[in-house]
Simulated scan of single mutants.
Amino acid sequence: MLIAPEDRFVNRSQLDDADTTKINRLKKIILYIQDSYQEPIRTRDLSELIPMSERQFCRFFKEMTRKTPVDYINSYRIRQAADLLQQSDRKISDIAFEVGFDNVSYFIKVFRRAMKCSPSEFRKGSGGTIIN
Rank of each mutant, 00 (worst) to 15 (best):
Asp17Arg: 14
Cys117Asn: 12
Ile50Leu: 10
Ile92Tyr: 01
Lys67Pro: 01
Pro69Ala: 02
Asn103Val: 02
Phe101Lys: 06
Arg66His: 13
Arg59Ile: 15
Ala4Met: 08
Asp71Val: 09
Phe61Asn: 05
Leu84Tyr: 09
Asp94Gly: 00
Ile92Gln: 11
Ile3Pro: 00
Glu6Val: 02
Ile29Lys: 01
Thr20Asn: 10
Lys27Asp: 11
Phe61Ser: 07
Ile30Gln: 01
Arg112Lys: 15
Leu31Met: 01
Asp7Gly: 06
Ala82Phe: 07
Asn132Phe: 04
Ala18Pro: 00
Tyr32Pro: 06
Tyr106Ser: 14
Asp17Ala: 14
Gln38His: 13
Tyr37Glu: 07
Ile78Asp: 06
Val104Thr: 13
Phe9His: 04
Ile50Val: 15
Phe57Ser: 06
Phe61Lys: 07
Gln86Thr: 13
Ser118Ile: 02
Ile95Asn: 07
Ile78Trp: 05
Lys28Gly: 04
Glu54Gly: 13
Ile50Pro: 01
Glu98Tyr: 04
Gly125Asp: 07
Arg123Phe: 01
Asp45Pro: 00
Arg79His: 03
Ser105Asp: 11
Leu49Cys: 02
Tyr32Asp: 06
Arg8Asp: 03
Phe60Arg: 08
Arg12Asn: 05
Lys91Tyr: 08
Ile108Trp: 00
Lys28Val: 05
Val70Asp: 11
Asp71Met: 07
Gly128Glu: 06
Pro119Ala: 06
Gln56Ile: 01
Cys117Arg: 01
Pro51His: 08
Ser120Asn: 11
Thr21Val: 06
Phe57Lys: 05
Asp71Gly: 09
Gln14Ile: 14
Thr68Ser: 15
Gln80Thr: 11
Glu54Arg: 15
Gly100Val: 03
Asp71Tyr: 09
Arg59His: 10
Arg25Cys: 12
Phe107Ser: 07
Ala18Phe: 11
Ala114Gly: 08
Ile73Trp: 07
Leu46Thr: 08
Lys62Thr: 14
Ile33Cys: 09
Ala96Pro: 04
Leu49Val: 06
Tyr32Glu: 08
Met64Ile: 00
Phe60Met: 04
Tyr37Asn: 12
Gln14Cys: 03
Asp45Ser: 12
Phe57Ile: 08
Asp89Leu: 03
Leu49Thr: 05
Ile29Gln: 00
Gln86Gly: 11
Leu46Asp: 04
Ile29Thr: 14
Gln56Val: 05
Leu15Trp: 00
Ser118Asp: 11
Ser88Ala: 03
Thr65Ala: 10
Glu121Lys: 11
Lys124Asn: 14
Phe107Asp: 05
Lys22Asn: 15
Asp19Thr: 09
Asp45Met: 13
Asn103Gly: 00
Ser36Trp: 00
Ile33Ser: 10
Ser53Asn: 12
Thr21Ile: 08
Asp16Ala: 14
Ile50Trp: 01
Asn132Val: 08
Val99His: 07
Lys109Glu: 14
Glu121Val: 14
Gly125Ile: 09
Phe111Met: 06
Arg66Phe: 10
Asn103Lys: 10
Asp102Val: 02
Asn11Asp: 14
Met52Leu: 12
Thr65Cys: 11
Cys117Glu: 02
Thr129Asn: 11
Tyr72Gly: 10
Lys116Ala: 14
Asn74Ser: 08
Asp94Val: 04
Lys22Gly: 12
Tyr106Ile: 13
Asp19Phe: 10
Lys22Ile: 09
